[in-house]
Each structure stands twice: as structure tokens, then as C-alpha cells.
Design a protein around this nucleic acid. Structure first.
Lengths: 237, 237
DNA sequence: AGAATAGTGTCTATCAGACACTATGCA
DNA sequence: TGCATAGTGTCTGATAGACACTATTCT
């Protein structure tokens, strides 16, 4: 049987489709993610990834919302961030049978990166008993609902890989940042330390490429103030 | 509304969920992919990616097959390869509203790589009017059904990226291969040429790492025969 | 012998890792 | 003045690109 075949809408039972979000931020120089506490069975009172059903229209004319729309809707709801442009990408689709004991649920997982200066707006959603940021390091002792630990593991693997060849680190520092702040973001995500001098060289190459530009002002520190820079989002082609 | 919320199975209408496959092989030194011709509307007689519905059980005890199972089932059906171990990975999930005019369909796309010596077993599936390999280069003039061109584009982008840091090229050469054959695979996928000498160095490093091992026998060519090698699948850790 | 392909060696530019050194502002 | 952090310079090893050269087999 292939998709090319004839089928009616009733020939096959359908799975429920949800989106789940792995929302990262840097809190107190720790990689953290947003979890909500479940109010209902199964896994009642367990911590889980925020997410929800994809809205599917019930007619040919209205087929509902796109997957990406569903994800960003959930993201804005959970983080209480409405206007800002947010970093959100599809991660992977988890669809093993029995991953939800009640019924067949296929979930399209997304991951998001929230700048630390915006992470303060989290509120418990209407269906969540509670919500909050959790350090990834301390998650080991906290059993998550469903297969959400697998989703978190994959998301971490993804951003660790992607940070080497895409500019996602800029999504985890303020609008204007110092070299040290950016290096901290790299170190936290990768879980390793980078030589200050060598990182500076890398930074300078990015400036030469136009990815980063100088910025008026300095960041006050305990000693010598540091130059501020800005990420150039719209690179001229 | 979040997943943590209370919901009954009937509260929400559900999308149909399918898997679609981008099946690559090397044919006559050209990157090719498997397409089937649709027998039914919509897009009747158009070429499309092979795929099909995910089997979803209708009870709590039987929730049906895993997504990956559905994908490999389709792959084996379409390629007529039953025993062999095949390379298959999830690509991306396409779920825009109205991507199928009849109803809401979310498709989980996978991509597969078939060794050229196994590519001959393709047969037209029961629901397909026809099936065959198409050179990717010549696809430009062939309009595909649904959003399948987007899926193909993304799959190509994925393997082009992945070939640089994973050993997927070995999935597109015979069990034993020469350096030149492997280099050809790289060149075809990346769409660029590699210096013979430099590629050999890279090859030698892979041998030093134990990824590739020497193999008895030579491949006859128009002139000097070439050494054969084998990909070491199970690297000792 | 000549063609064709396999196989080797070398020079250079780039970049990362390691590490030492200088400069500047704050307490 | 001393400390902490910003900022700079240098050496080395690994790797990629360009390219020249040698070796072997077939016709």
C-alpha cells in the first residue's frame, strides 16, 4: 500500500499529532530548559516538555494550522513572549507505538533558544500546574514524562553539533555582548572550555566576515571594561 | 492548551500521518532517486515519492507500528530488498496545511541510500502505475506531486552536509571498492571534484583510524588494476 | 611504445591548541 | 599598588588545495 493508492478518509485510523518544545536558555551561566508540571494522568505531577495538539481543521477549506505555526504558538504561550523574533527549529518526530499509554500519539519535537534577558517572562500555562526553568545538569534525578528525556537528549546533541557551523550561539546572548559572554555561551553548550586567545581569533574572523560588528559602549566588569559587539542578522549577499 | 491538559480522544480532529521516502542510489555515475507514478487523483499520473500511511492500531493494546517500522516496511516493499541491511534515516516532517488538497496530511519524510549493486530490484508497487530511478539532474523539468520537490531538495541538502562528517558515502559504493570509486561517490554527491592525491591522504587517514581496511584482490580497469578496500562497519570502541 | 590510471611527494595557506605576554580599569 | 579581566603575539601540529612526479598494467 502506498500513498499513491486510492483511499478514503475513513480507511485508516489516525494518530493524534502534537508538537513538543525543548526551550533552552542560559540562566546563571547554566544551560536550562523550560518544563511544566502535568496536572492530569498519565504521568500526573511529573515534569514534561511544554506542547500541545496541532489544530487540524475539519473541512477541506480549513485544514487548520501549519506544524510550525503550532510550535510557535505554543512557544509564545509558554514563554509569554509575543512580539520578539524567536529562534525555533524542528528537531525530530517521535512516533513509537505506546509512547503515550492512552493512545497513539505522534509528536513533532521542536527546539527553541531564548535570550537570557527574555527568559524571565515564563508563567504557568492554563493547563499546567506549574512551570519553570531547570538546569540541564540537575535533570538526571528528575524523571520526565513520556519519552521526553529522549527528546531532550537529542535536542542537546543537536545544538552541540549545530553551534560549530551555524550562528545559534547568538540566540543565547543579549542583543549586545562581549567576547567573553559569547565564549561563555559556547563553553556552556559544548561543555568544554575554549582558550581565550584562540577564541578571540575566531571572533575576529567572524568580524572580518561581517557576521559581527562593533558596537558603541562598553560592558562594566570587575576590572577593565569590555568592548560590546552586535550580531549582524541580515548579512548582505 | 497544552499536552498536559485533560483531553479525550474525540476532542480534536486528527491529521492523516504518512511516511514518504527519498531513496537515493548511484546509477551510471549519476545521483538518482526512486519515484512512482500516481494512479489516482490528486496529481494523477504525476511522479511522486514512494510512501504510505503509518499503520495505527485501533486499541490501547495495539497502537500499530513505529514510524521507523513504517518507513523501512515501505522501503523494502518499493526496492524489493528484504534481507539486506539498509541505510534509512528520518529527514524532516512536512505538515503545512493544504499540502494535500483532500485532507490534512502530515508526512514524516525519510531518506535512504541504496548501494548501486542492489538498485536493480525495483518493481512497481501494487498501488503505483509505474516506478523507476530518475537522475536528480534531470528532475528539473519533471514536476512532482504535492510538496515532494521540497522534500527532495532538503534530502539532497542533508546528505551533502552529512557526507562531510559521517560515513554515509560507503552506503553508495559496493561492498568492496577502490579509492577512485569512493572519490566518485563524494564527487557526485557534493557536485564538485576532489584532487586525487589529496583524497588519497584523507583515505589513508581513515585507514589509520580503522574505518577502512585493506581487502584481498584488485579491481580491473582499463590500465593498472586498483586495490580494493572494505568499510569497517563495527568499529571497536 | 604509448595511453591510462594507480599511487607518491612537496609546497603553501589556513586554522586550532597551547601558552606567554601586555594593557587597562577598579578597589 | 595589586588584582582581575581585556586584549595581543607566537610557536606548533593537523589538514586542505594545488600540482608535479613516479609506477604499473593494458593494448
Amino acid at each position: 500500500m502506498t500513498q499513491a493508492g486510492k483511499y478514503s478518509e475513513l480507511d485508516y485510523s489516525r494518530p493524534a499529532v502534537t508538537v513538543d518544545l525543548v526551550i533552552f536558555t542560559l540562566l546563571d551561566n547554566k544551560l536550562s530548559l523550560l518544563l511544566i508540571r502535568r496536572k492530569a494522568a498519565p504521568f500526573r505531577d511529573r515534569w514534561a516538555l511544554p506542547g500541545g495538539f496541532v489544530r487540524v481543521g475539519d473541512s477541506v477549506k480549513d485544514q487548520g494550522e501549519d506544524l510550525d505555526q503550532a510550535a510557535i504558538r505554543e512557544l509564545r504561550e509558554e514563554t509569554n513572549l509575543q512580539g520578539q523574533s524567536l529562534f525555533l527549529e524542528q528537531l525530530y518526530t517521535f512516533g513509537k507505538a505506546h509512547r503515550d499509554p492512552r493512545m497513539r500519539v505522534v509528536t513533532v519535537a521542536y527546539y527553541a533558544l531564548i535570550r537570557p534577558d527574555l527568559a524571565g517572562n515564563v508563567h504557568a500555562g492554563s493547563d499546567a500546574a506549574d512551570a519553570g526553568w531547570f538546569e540541564l545538569q540537575k535533570l538526571g534525578h528528575l524523571p520526565l514524562a513520556f519519552d521526553h528525556q529522549d527528546i531532550v537528549d537529542l535536542a542537546l546533541k543537536r545544538i552541540r553539533g549545530k553551534i560549530d557551523y551555524t550562528p545559534i550561539a547568538f540566540e543565547l546572548v543579549p542583543e549586545t555582548f562581549t567576547i567573553t559572554e559569547l565564549r561563555n555561551a559556547y563553553e556552556i553548550i559544548k561543555g568544554q572550555s575554549y582558550d581565550r586567545g584562540n577564541f578571540r581569533r575566531r571572533f575576529n574572523r567572524m568580524m572580518a566576515d561581517g557576521i559581527i560588528e562593533d558596537c558603541a559602549g562598553k560592558r562594566a566588569t570587575a576590572s577593565k571594561p569590555a568592548q560590546l559587539y552586535r550580531f549582524v542578522r541580515d548579512l548582505p549577499r
